[in-house]
């Protein structure tokens, strides 16, 4: 049940996201689950662009627009600053994109995860540098078109969840806007855990993915149901839980709706399917499920 009075919208309307932006939806859902006793960190990215120009802000909680690669240590600094003052009822949330997480911010995130500083880090993954106009990042999936991979990305998407799991941090989870209840439950769960919590959130980008403005949630669901982006949690780097049993639709159903994959050859689609199948098998194995 949604009672708007009880759970205020903390990403205010009037923000500057593109129409149909999955990232805005994601931030809205996360902030709502976080609640007003939150300090948020954003970095130069779509989040910065969305957040409004002085003197206006879309963020309903105290927020700092930090530098690109330091979402994690900024959040950690705030968290520890509060801790030394004995303030325990404020949660610190870091938002960074895939560029700020998989690429330029990876080291800093790793450092914070190693220290297990008490923050919730949400990677808003739209699979490329979208704010600067669609360039490849290490999160861009195989064969996808971007402005800097005009013939398609030759490399696979980095597995950030495994990187995080290797830090043995208490909680990491994947989430996506198409499963808002799952997403908000994960945020709520993360709030109850002390230490570095990492949420890898897939957020479809109509502009960068070359899709209509009305299908972001649908793509998000398809990403899960095709096993391109399974929903799962990793606790203490070792306990894996799969949160949603996918319908295992063919990856083609996901790919075919996006302009960035329009040029794909049959064998490339098959390759993506094989990769998805293989990753799913690995994930099931880690979750203690056979086959």
């Amino acid at each position: 049940m949604v009672l708007t009075e009880e759970r205020p919208n903390l990403l205010r309307p009037g923000h500057a996201a593109c129409a149909g932006c999955g990232l805005a939806t994601g931030m809205k859902l996360v902030l709502q689950a976080m609640g007003p006793r939150t300090i948020a960190v954003i970095v130069p990215s779509c989040e910065g662009a969305i957040g409004g120009v002085y003197p206006y802000t879309a963020y309903g909680v105290p927020t700092i627009h930090s530098a690109f690669e330091i979402a994690a240590p900024t959040a950690a600094g705030i968290a520890n600053g509060l801790k030394v003052q004995g303030i325990t009822d404020i949660q610190v949330l870091a938002f960074a994109g895939d560029g700020g997480t998989f690429d330029i911010g990876l080291q800093a995130l790793s450092g914070v995860a190693k220290n297990n500083d008490d923050i919730i880090y949400v990677c808003l993954d739209n699979e490329g540098y979208m704010n600067t106009g669609i360039q490849v990042s290490s999160s861009t999936p195989s064969f996808a078109w971007t402005g800097t991979t005009p013939k398609g990305n030759p490399r696979r998407k980095k597995n950030i969840m495994e990187i995080m799991a290797a830090h043995y941090n208490p909680y990491s989870a994947t989430a996506t806007i198409g499963f808002p209840r799952d997403l908000q439950q994960k945020i709520t769960k993360a709030k109850g855990i002390r230490g570095t919590k990492f949420i890898h959130m897939l957020v479809p980008c109509p502009t960068g993915w070359r899709t209509p403005s009305d299908i972001s949630p649908e793509l998000s669901v398809l990403a899960v149901e095709t096993n391109i982006f399974p929903l799962y949690e990793v606790e203490d780097g070792k306990r894996y839980t799969i949160n949603h049993q996918p319908r295992r639709l063919p990856v083609r159903e996901y790919l075919s709706r996006q302009g960035r994959f329009r040029h794909l050859k049959e064998e490339e689609i098959e390759q993506i399917q094989r990769d998805a199948d293989e990753e799913w098998k690995k994930l099931r194995y880690r979750a203690g499920l056979s086959g």
Binding site: I64, P73, A75, G77, I78, G81, A108, G111
Partner: peptide, 15 residues
């Protein structure tokens, strides 16, 4: 780099 980032952020909490 992160040390300075953390100092700045913590400072903004008033410590």
């Amino acid at each position: 780099h992160s040390a300075m980032a953390s100092c700045i952020a913590a400072s903004l909490t008033g410590v």
